[in-house]
Design a protein around this nucleic acid. Structure first.
Lengths: 339, 339
DNA sequence: TGACAAAACTAAAACGATTTAGTAAAATAT
DNA sequence: ATATTTTACTAAATCGTTTTAGTTTTGTCA
């Protein structure tokens, strides 16, 4: 880096190398119609003077940004839920490997209402969107029918065939967790549900209901507790249950964070887990292995899913095809919070 | 949005409005030398046809990207530490308000060694960098002396005057926490330290040492326990202390996550907090208010700091000046984990 | 040796904005 | 009514690439 790299353009390189601008561009883009000799010469000069191509000129000319946006829900705590953390990580690593850049976007209400996600395409800011999250989903549906921009949602499902997704079988998560509680002897099972405007919240509840039905367990007024996806939701849910003296010996929490909240409340109430109450979560976040007692849960390959989603998106971008959807299978992980 | 916005350029608008391209550009950029009448006319057409300016052409022409990169440490758990979560949040909100975009980057070893952060500037990808984190700091120093690109580090300090920062007084954090333990009657205080290649780790330890000296408490072989910044570090630290039967009645953990790890281990060991051992952390993450018992800690305004850092960076970018550094004051928050 | 194909290279247009330097039109002063 | 200033507008250069449609050079073979 002898010279200030900021001042150099492809033309400077061309002059120094006594070749055309086209040739330099071809070298830069590995176009095969360049002799080894010229390639070496140009490459040497590029390195010697410290030249770096201007990415904006490149994008303008090639109509390709090599950038994707990862949009995450607006929750303040978004990054505090390890689920999102892993997902974003998976997206990041995959994007980086493919030499793409990652723009971070929050799906605020305003973002959706003003159709900012579409404008990102119109303004040529990005080549595709990865939507990690669950809320606001419906804002996207119609638009992506009309404008077939590359788009994948992770763990958010729509009955609209045109909206591709990569997700885990959330119904099965609910079913597996509930079935395990039943089979391990729980008689009075409660589900602390997630938000009902999210796919995972709805589907996990559905799975819960199916298992209950399958094993002929009738529901009562406290079989389902409204909740959300935070530790506080679990904590409050348990407090609600036992403040009302509901009879409960098994809790399926919509996710691990909620389950951890349950564990905290149960400890405060001096209720033994799993002796008095079994608790099972879902997501298998890292923390759940080191709770007290270690949490039983349903694993889903979040990182893998994010990776796959990103690969599918990049594939669709490069081949100008439609993204193919994919469903991953969940798996029981039994630790010490269940009998 | 009648017409596919992707096909429109500023020239199309100019033609439709029967004005020059310059005029349209002026309207777009609020140049005052346009009559209200023309402005309205152009704006209407822009809206009617659904035109959006091409951001790459704009950046190429104006030599301004309106993009900053937020670079975070390579830790897999980056997003799981609420500290980073809040910091990134502060950066995001500020950037968005200023109509800038946020590029997410991980400070991997490779990122530093290959000087990717410099290349971001050379390739005209960004206007500035916000460095949230603590490690790898030294890789940057020399470079930003030579290339005075806009750059701020949050909570990472360097004796090199040319490297601007926004940080909390970490020394004071260590001092305040330790002094409180001493004053509240602890006789055998241990510090579970953070990584010694981070500013906060070093400075908090320094503050701890100063307080101990000031109050004439001599150190022993377990006054300082090597650690890191995760819950596991706190857990292991406490186990180490009590497996070795060290006499300890007060723990200053380098941050709340570590302190929470301590709480977990202490509970397992049936050691009462704060009756037998006081625990104090630092950072005041949200979770620390709902631990059992609620954690005493030292608050620092992470979100505010990130916001300020970003404002300073943007200011420096727009005025082509140097970033001014700023130090924030920490504050004790006493809850129930200390006597 | 000359004809032809393949390989290596290039000129110029295109991508879509901003901005400088200047012209035309309108408003004000004389 | 004319000169002058101010306001409103525009032509053309520029930013730094990619890419198309050639042209030139080299190599192959009868």
């Amino acid at each position: 880096m002898n010279i200030n790299p900021r001042k150099l353009s492809i033309e400077d390189i061309a002059k120094k190398a006594r070749v055309s601008v086209t040739t330099v561009s071809f070298v830069l883009n590995n176009n095969p119609s360049i002799s080894e000799k010229t390639r070496k010469k140009v490459l040497k000069i590029i390195k010697d003077v410290g030249y770096y191509p201007n990415i904006n000129a490149r994008s303008l000319s090639s109509q390709k940004t090599n950038t994707i946006a990862v949009v995450v829900p607006e929750l303040t705590h978004i990054f505090e839920d390890p689920y999102f953390s892993r997902a974003v990580s998976g997206v990041y690593d995959t994007v980086e490997k493919a030499s793409y850049r990652l723009l971070l976007k929050k799906a605020s209400l305003e973002f959706a209402v003003n159709k900012e996600y579409l404008k990102l395409f119109f303004r040529k800011e990005i080549d595709g969107i990865i939507y990690v999250g669950s809320t606001l989903r419906d804002f996207y549906l119609g638009d992506f029918n009309k404008y077939p921009f590359p788009f994948v949602q992770i763990n958010s499902f729509s009955y609209n065939e045109n909206i591709p997704y990569v997700m885990v079988d959330n119904h099965k998560i609910g079913y597996l967790a509930t079935e395990y509680l039943i089979k391990s002897g729980c008689k009075n099972i409660t589900h602390i549900a997630g938000s009902m405007d999210t796919t995972s919240g709805i589907e996990r509840l559905d799975g819960f209901l199916e298992a209950m039905k399958r094993y002929n367990i009738s529901l009562n007024n406290h079989s389902i507790i409204d909740g959300g996806f935070t530790q506080a939701d679990g904590y409050n849910g348990v407090k609600r249950i036992f403040n009302n003296n509901y009879k409960v010996d098994g809790i399926f929490a919509t996710n691990d964070l909620v389950a951890i909240g349950c564990l905290g409340a149960l400890r405060e109430l001096n209720i033994k887990v799993p002796d008095n109450v079994s608790v099972i979560g879902a997501d298998n976040i890292e923390q759940s292995a080191i709770t007290n007692p270690p949490l039983s849960t349903v694993d889903m390959p979040t990182y893998e899913m994010a990776k796959r989603a990103t690969e599918l998106l990049l594939e669709a971008i490069e081949n100008k095809t439609k993204v193919k959807s994919k469903v991953f299978e969940p798996e029981l992980v039994i630790r010490k919070s269940t009998r």
